[in-house]
Simulated assay, not measured.
Amino acid sequence: MGRIIQRNQAAPCHMQWRNRAIATIEADFNRSADTHLIRVDLPEFDGITLYLKDESSHPTGSLKHRLARSLFLFAICNGKIGPETTIVEASSGSTAVSEAYFARMLNLPFVAVMPRTTSREKIAAIEFYGGRPHLVDDPKSVYDAARQVAEETTGYYIDQFTYAERATDWRGNNNIADSIFCQMQHEEHPNPRWIVAGAGTGGTSATLGRYIRYKKLDTRLCVADPEGSVFHQHFQDRNITEIEACKSMIEGIGRPRVEPSFIPEVVDCMVAVPDAASLAAQRLISDVLGRACGGSTGTNIWACALLISDMVRRGESGSVVTLLCDHGDRYRSTYFNDDWVKSNGFDIEPYLQKLRGFFYAGQLIEE
Score class of each variant (00 low, 15 high):
Gly198Asp: 07
Val40Arg: 05
Trp194Tyr: 15
Ile195Gln: 04
Trp17Asn: 03
Thr204Leu: 12
Ser70Tyr: 11
Asp329Gln: 09
Ile22Val: 15
Leu352Ala: 08
Leu73Glu: 14
Gly362Lys: 07
Phe262Gln: 01
Pro192Ala: 01
Asp144Ala: 14
Arg66Ala: 08
Tyr335Ser: 12
Ala145Glu: 15
Gly172Thr: 05
Tyr214Asp: 13
Arg255Thr: 13
Asn191Lys: 12
Thr60Arg: 08
Thr49Asp: 13
Ile176Arg: 04
Phe235Asn: 06
Pro83Trp: 00
Ala68Tyr: 09
Glu127Thr: 13
Thr299Met: 03
Gly155Tyr: 09
Phe358His: 09
Tyr129Gln: 04
Arg193Pro: 04
Leu279Ser: 02
Arg255Met: 14
Thr153Met: 09
Ser141His: 10
Ser333Tyr: 00
Thr118Ala: 13
Leu324His: 14
Gly298Thr: 07
Asp326Ser: 10
Ile123Asp: 06
Glu366Ile: 04
Ile5Pro: 02
Arg332Lys: 12
Val97Ile: 15
Ile76Asp: 01
Gly131Cys: 12
Cys325Ser: 13
Glu26Ile: 00
Tyr156Phe: 15
Gln233Ser: 05
Thr24Tyr: 04
Tyr211Ser: 02
Tyr360His: 15
Arg255Asp: 15
Ile158His: 11
Ile176Trp: 06
Glu84Tyr: 08
Gly203His: 10
Val320Asp: 07
Ala10Thr: 13
Leu355Val: 08
Arg69Gly: 06
Arg255Gly: 10
Thr168Tyr: 02
Lys354Arg: 13
Gly357Lys: 11
Lys215His: 14
Ser286Met: 08
Trp194Pro: 03
Ala21Leu: 06
Lys64Cys: 04
Gly200Tyr: 15
Ala177Ser: 12
Tyr351Glu: 01
Arg66Pro: 00
Ser94Glu: 10
Glu55Met: 05
Leu52Cys: 00
Lys215Pro: 01
Asp326Thr: 00
Leu135Thr: 14
Ala199Gln: 02
Tyr143Pro: 00
Ile263Phe: 07
Thr24Phe: 04
Val136Ala: 06
Ile301Asp: 02
Tyr51Arg: 01
Ala125Pro: 04
Ser309Trp: 05
Leu42Asn: 04
Ser91Lys: 11
